[in-house]
């Protein structure tokens, strides 16, 4: 790897990290798992003067209870989320999404927080995080602020994060039941999602009392399939109802992505199929 030369910092505390970022601002880049940043450095598509490695900051590599929900620290890897008992108990959708990401090496190093900070439109995490109403906790020189995941991710590769800010954790505000699923179609080279759908639902007497559907990979940014949710809310979820509702996915987005891996029409079709499958799988779970 032959990136442009940079200075490497490994601060010992979050405060120290924020302080370094304050000094260098946009010239600095935070390094977590490095599985998005390092490829970009190697290709010289990113050339920060300073790299601030937060992967070993104390306390950040933990999943903790937070109120009735839980908090996922910035150092928590995809792999941890696959195996963490708290996640499995309080937020099974996260545990079901994690194994769908990349391969073993990627999961061993890459982080959930790194993924949402990178905001790749094909990343998996935004789908379940939208469905779970996740909150992103940001720290900066001016203190702390919290953004809903939907506000946090702006568009392709862009977030509301300022150059001198760090995401400390992602908070899932409450516990969710096991009726959830994540379904994706992988791009065969990278493993990223050509389309991915996360569904979290709650049932009462065979009826769907609440449903949240996050869709990723098919548009500039992940989104909640609100129209579909509305049709399914309170409905009895049989295959026909679900299939009918899923058709509305084309109305949820203006422009489906189109690239060398999949056309817009194909993505739209996949989104529809995956919504059906994910809802059915969530029902069965």
């Amino acid at each position: 790897m032959i990136p442009v030369a940079f200075d490497y910092h490994r601060p010992r505390t979050l405060e120290e990290a924020v302080d370094i970022l304050r000094q260098y601002g946009d010239e600095a880049k935070v390094l977590a798992g490095g599985h998005s940043l390092i490829p970009a450095l190697k290709l010289r598509l990113a050339a920060p003067k300073v790299v601030v490695d937060i992967s070993r900051l104390p306390g950040l590599s933990e999943v903790r209870r937070s109120g009735s929900g839980l908090s996922i620290g910035a150092g928590v890897t995809h792999h941890q989320l696959m195996v963490d008992p708290l996640i499995a108990k309080l937020c099974p959708l996260i545990a079901r999404t994690a194994p769908e990401i990349g391969d073993v090496q990627v999961r061993n190093l890459g982080t959930l927080v790194g993924s949402i900070c990178h905001a790749d439109p094909a990343a998996d995490w935004p789908a379940p995080l939208l469905a779970l109403e996740a909150q992103v906790v940001i720290v900066g020189p001016e203190g702390e602020r919290t953004l809903h995941i939907n506000e946090f991710i702006e568009g392709m590769l862009t977030t509301r994060l300022a150059g001198h800010e760090i995401v400390r954790e992602v908070v899932i505000p409450r516990a969710y039941p096991a009726s959830c699923a994540y379904k994706k179609i992988r791009q065969s080279a990278s493993g990223f999602a050509i389309a991915g759908v996360a569904v979290q639902l709650e049932k009462k007497n065979r009826k769907c009392s609440s449903i949240a559907i996050g869709v990723t990979g098919v548009a500039q940014r992940a989104f909640r399939a609100r129209l579909i949710e509305k049709s399914l809310q309170g409905a009895e979820l049989d295959e026909k109802t679900i299939a009918q509702a899923a058709r509305q996915v084309t109305e949820e987005v203006n422009d489906f992505l189109s690239d060398l891996h999949a056309s817009a029409a194909y993505r739209a079709a996949l989104a529809q199929v995956l919504v059906q499958r994910a809802v059915l799988a969530a029902l069965a779970a």
Partner: peptide
């Protein structure tokens, strides 16, 4: 160049943005 061969899938979106 580089942006075409490593970022083809993102170019369309980038241009739009």
């Amino acid at each position: 160049g580089m942006i075409a061969s490593v970022g083809a899938r993102l170019c369309q979106g980038a241009a739009r943005m």
